[in-house]
């Protein structure tokens, strides 16, 4: 089947331009034959094109919703969509069509029921009915939104929700996976700290030692992938977000370096500047009631039980 070549096969820019041209041609052909064209016709009309790039172009058109893939007695057919909107193709009453259109416009960011109501001017019961019917036809779906617990957004069924809705790699079903983040945070630090410890044994000067202790985000990512603690494939941005939390923890520092004409971020573990400061080594430093503590009243240093515990 033509539509299987994966996205990652996309080559450099030149091929992309070609692919675009090709896509245009295919689209034009489909528009000419509204009943749909099959693979054989396509092949015949553009013999000079190799099957792989054709598949690519078709894939591209499919994901963008420019054409549809239909099963018929003649085999698979590619058919141009009449307009970018699919409203015309759905069956249902006028309300449903209206609602569908509004939801379609929102794309993969989704839209909220209140906005639909305002835009469509429908009363709640009508709207609910339309939504329910569309949902049962598997034309739309509801997605829980990470930003607030009770908010639900609607979008077309085949769309992959935007990361602003799902929250990206750190959310599963709108729950923030804090443990996962915590573990990654610890593991990244561990990796960098091991490097720091190794660099201490380095005998060729402090600059060298500093270099040894650094790692780029890609290296960290590789280490994490090899550990196999992540079920999903993390992207470099994800790991950088984790590394950023380590920077905010004050455990890691980031430097920008220019390597092979490309800017890379280098991370290294650092020792904190000072050990636990003197104030915090006595009970008053961490005392929750220090503001209330005075000579008079029941909170005072003489009767204080924190002190008593600390001194005994």
């Amino acid at each position: 089947m033509a539509a299987v070549a994966s996205k990652s096969d996309q080559g450099p820019a030149k091929i992309k331009v070609e692919a675009n041209e090709l896509a245009e041609r295919i689209l034009a052909l489909c528009a000419e034959i509204p009943q749909g064209v099959n693979d054989k016709v396509l092949q015949a009309s553009m013999p000079e094109v190799d099957p792989k790039s054709r598949a690519l172009a078709i894939n591209h058109l499919l994901t963008n919703g420019k054409i549809d893939l239909l099963q018929s007695e003649r085999g698979l057919l590619y058919k141009a969509r009449t307009s970018t909107s699919q409203v015309g193709t759905i069956k249902g009453d006028a309300e449903e069509k209206l609602v569908y259109k509004i939801i379609e416009e929102a794309q993969n960011k989704g839209t909220w029921i209140r906005d639909i109501r305002i835009k469509s001017n429908l009363v709640q019961t009508q709207l609910n009915k339309a939504l329910k019917s569309l949902k049962s036809k598997k034309l739309i779906k509801d997605v829980k939104c990470v930003n607030s617990t009770r908010k639900i957004v609607y979008m077309l069924y085949h769309l992959e929700p935007d990361s602003s809705v799902t929250g990206g790699a750190w959310y599963s079903d709108q729950d923030f996976e804090s443990e996962f983040v915590e573990i990654l945070n610890q593991q990244c630090y561990r990796y960098l700290y091991q490097k720091l410890e190794k660099s201490r044994e380095c005998t060729s000067g402090p600059l060298m030692a500093k270099n040894i202790s650094q790692a780029s985000s890609k290296e960290v990512l590789q280490y994490i992938s090899e550990l196999g603690i992540s079920k999903i494939q993390l992207r470099p941005e994800d790991i950088e977000a984790i590394l950023d939390t380590l920077i905010f923890d004050g455990k890691v520092e980031k430097t920008l370096a220019l390597a092979e004409g490309e800017e890379t971020r280098l991370y290294r573990a650092v020792e904190s500047l000072i050990p636990v400061t003197g104030l915090m080594r006595m009970p008053c430093g961490g005392c929750p009631v220090i503001k209330e503590c005075s000579d008079v009243g029941s909170v005072n240093p003489i009767k204080c039980s924190y002190m008593k515990e600390w001194l005994s």
Partner: peptide, 16 residues
Amino acid sequence: EMCYMSLSNAIIRKNH
């Protein structure tokens, strides 16, 4: 300010 309070408290406790 927290340091001042803590120092006072330590001195008071010690005297006590």
